[in-house]
Each structure stands twice: as structure tokens, then as C-alpha cells.
Design a protein around this nucleic acid. Structure first.
Ligand SMILES: [Mn+2]
Ligand SMILES: [Mn+2]
Ligand SMILES: [Mn+2]
Ligand SMILES: [Mn+2]
Lengths: 219, 219
DNA sequence: AAATATTTTTAGTCTTATCTAAATTTTATT
DNA sequence: AATAAAATTTAGATAAGACTAAAAATATTT
């Protein structure tokens, strides 16, 4: 039996360790979980006893295969619920995260598999993040960040790195959504801002925007 | 802030006290919650301090207006999720209760109101129980229990009292569902069994079945 | 290589929700 | 009305998950 709190720790470790690949430090987890390092130490011991993480004192943790499986399953649930909220319940993409944070802990294989079928097996959540299938396999797409895009080329917007309400609302107000076509017009070396053409307008986006928007080549 | 456990206790008190009307005893709550009377005493004290119940030592509890409001809201969520599971995710009516038991605790006004709209404002859950609206009003229908039905009359099946898997599966196997038309053919005084006509068959149901099936007059 | 700074762990508390055992109150029976 | 039985509450423990303060280990500077 795994608790809600353990699930959240495992998910945090998965994300902080670049999808379960790298070692993660105590302080990093504490910051991500908005708790204290001492609480993290306690929890790490428990996760280690339950074989969700490999742990040597003072040396940080990595997820075991079991831990990765748990993490991927929670992410699967989180993202499927996000799709449900946007597609069926008219939530906007900046409203879904908090509710999904709770829904992801509902434990029912049948529920999540039927939900996936009901949503017609979506491959990406409302922020463009891939949804793992029942076996934990991700559907990867070739994407680059806007700040690395090339002048004159046409791209399609396929994801965001920052999922904060303020960034998503910024995109809304500038008519940028997943699927929007973007042509790179000019890259300003002075401040790394980028001028782009959308449907019928041209706008300049700052470096911080350009670093948080993912694009896919259009052929 | 109300915890998941507090919500479950309040719901239990609501049901045991005939929808929040009667006094409920400690032992009854303990049995319903599958816990010990001493734990119930502790929780009652907390609920009383938070003004969800009126409580005098050794005299049992009743829900306050606040307590009733909480209870009705959880029931609203529970039943809407049950409808969702049956209508959209192909759960059968004997599979929904356990999952709804968890989903009912997700805290988001928007989520539940949008879900209600998505389901087109259902008035009853898959077991025929009424779903309160946002303000807590129930939609009541005139229903009687099969054991009190009159010979020769045609009724429509509108609900069940027992929602156990075994009873619901019994009804399934006898082709009795919500909406099924039932004509009373004979009431056997010896064992209180009842012979009924369904679509094209006639069956005899025992007293315990007859006491758990709700009917509505058809004119 | 010491000294200092940072990170991590341990020790000791707190709260919530549970339990068992014992004490108390209420109810039922003689 | 006294006694026995049943219901309820209290007392004292436990486990999970958090915290603060202090100790220990590791990393960084001098
Ligand atoms: Mn979560
Ligand atoms: Mn997302
Ligand atoms: Mn519940
Ligand atoms: Mn129901």
C-alpha cells in the first residue's frame, strides 16, 4: 500500500531527476515539495525501505524500477485527467493542474483505462506533455524550443515548459495555442527577443517566452 | 478546512440519522465506519468543536445545518460521479460505489458543477437515488417498496435500497433494471414472496428482494 | 590541509486518526 | 431500589507526516 504523500514524493523525484535518470538531492526535493529537508530525510528512508528509491546516506536518491513505474503511472493519470477537464468539462489549460493534482491519486485501474478510452487515447495533455500508455511507454515527438528556432522556417506550437497560469494566460491573450503555426521573422541579438508571424499578426516575444515554448517543424 | 475522514464521518451520521433528522449513537457510527467506539468518541468531539454536530455526552449526535450541508454536498458529488462512471466509462451499477467513495472527496466547485452540466443535470444516480442540486435540494419522487405493491397494478422500477454487488447482480441476471416495468401477479402470504411479470417472463422474488426494490406507479 | 560554509541527518515535538484497556454513565433486569 | 449489562468516554499508545534545533557529513575557500 502506497500513500498519497509517498506518491507525491516519488513524482517529485522523477521530475527533478530528469525522468528518473539522475540522482536527486534532499534540498531539491524539499523545495519542490514545499517542506523541510528533515521531513524529506524521513520520507526517503521510508521510500528506500519500500524499495521505491536507492539511497546512500548523504548521497541523494535515485528511483528504482518500481519507483519509476509508480511515477509514470501517476503522471499518466494526471495528464489524462487534465485532458478530461479541458476536453469535456470546459476547463482552460491554466486551470487544470491543481484539480489533476488530486485526481491523480484515485486508485482504480479500470477507471483510468476507461477514461483513456473515453478520451480516445490522447497522446498529449493540454500543455503538450506526452501521456504514457498502460505499459508506461511515452509517445515522443521531435520538438525544439522557440529560442533555438531558425529564421524563415514555419513551426507548429506543440508544448510549453512553464505551465504557470500567468504564462498560459499570456499565450491566450496573444492567440498562441497548441497547434498554432509560427514563422520566425527576426531574432534580435541584443536582448534575444524574437519576432514571429502568427495567423495574421506579427508579434515580438521576449527571451523568457521563447525559452518556454516548444515547436515542431512543419514540412 | 475539513479532512477526508471528517467528511466520511459526517456522511455516515447523515445516513444513519435518516438524512440528518434523528439522533445517532456512537456504536452505530462505529459499525458503519468499521472502527471502534472510542475512535468515534474522539471524532465526535472534533466535529462538535467545528460545529458540524450537536453533541451532549452519552446522548448521541445530530448534524447541525453546517453538517447537513457538508453531507449533502458529498452525496451530490458521490452520485454525480456514479452517473459519470456508468454513463461515460461503461462501469456497471455494482462497480461504481467504491470508486465514487474516493472521488466524492475531490474539492473543486467548478469540477462538480461542470461535471453535472456535462452529464446533463441527472436527477438520479445509477441506483435510483436522488442527486441534490448546487443548493442542496433533492428531487423527490413517489416511490413504494415492492413488498407493499398491489396485485394487478403496473409499476416501474425506480431504485434499490440494497446496493450490494450480490443484489445488483441478482437483478441483472433476472433482467430487472431501473425503468423496467413490473406487474404484480401474486403475493404469497406463506413466505411473503411475490410473483411478478416482466417484459415477457414471470418470476417469483423472495421477501428480501421485495423489500429492497423501489417502484413507482405507472398511469 | 585547515577553516568555513553548505547539505543532510538525527533527536525530540506536534497533530490526526487509530487502537486497547479501564473507567464512567446510562439502560435493563431482578 | 439495587444490581447487572450495555453503551460511551477517558487514558495511554502507536504510526504517519510534518516541524525546529542540533549534530554530523560533505563541499568549498582560504
Ligand atoms: Mn498530487
Ligand atoms: Mn500538464
Ligand atoms: Mn468517502
Ligand atoms: Mn448510488
Amino acid at each position: 500500500m502506497i500513500t498519497l504523500t509517498e506518491e507525491n514524493y516519488i513524482k517529485a523525484i522523477y521530475h527533478l531527476g530528469n525522468n528518473g535518470e539522475n540522482i536527486v538531492n534532499t534540498n531539491a526535493i524539499a523545495e519542490e515539495m514545499r517542506t523541510k529537508a528533515s521531513s524529506v530525510s524521513d520520507m526517503i528512508k521510508k521510500l528506500s525501505e519500500k524499495n521505491y528509491v536507492d539511497y546512500k546516506k548523504y548521497q541523494g536518491v535515485t528511483l528504482t524500477a518500481d519507483g519509476k513505474f509508480v511515477a509514470i503511472n501517476i503522471i499518466r493519470k494526471h495528464r489524462l485527467w487534465e485532458v478530461f477537464l479541458v476536453e469535456k468539462l470546459n476547463f482552460s489549460w491554466d486551470e487544470v493542474h491543481e484539480v489533476a493534482e488530486h485526481l491523480e491519486h484515485i486508485k482504480s485501474e479500470k477507471l483510468i483505462n476507461q477514461l483513456e478510452a473515453f478520451l480516445e487515447f490522447p497522446k498529449h495533455d493540454p500543455h503538450g506533455d506526452p501521456i504514457p500508455d498502460k505499459e508506461g511507454n511515452f509517445h515522443h515527438i521531435e520538438k525544439i524550443v522557440l529560442s533555438k528556432a531558425e529564421i524563415g522556417t514555419v513551426y507548429k506550437c506543440v508544448g510549453v515548459d512553464d505551465t504557470s497560469t500567468s504564462f498560459l494566460k499570456y499565450l491566450d491573450s496573444n492567440k498562441i495555442a497548441l497547434g498554432t503555426l509560427i514563422t520566425i521573422i527576426h531574432k534580435e541579438p541584443y536582448d534575444n527577443s524574437i519576432k514571429i508571424r502568427l495567423d495574421d499578426t506579427e508579434i515580438v516575444v521576449s527571451q523568457s517566452v521563447a525559452k518556454n515554448l516548444y515547436l515542431e517543424m512543419v514540412n
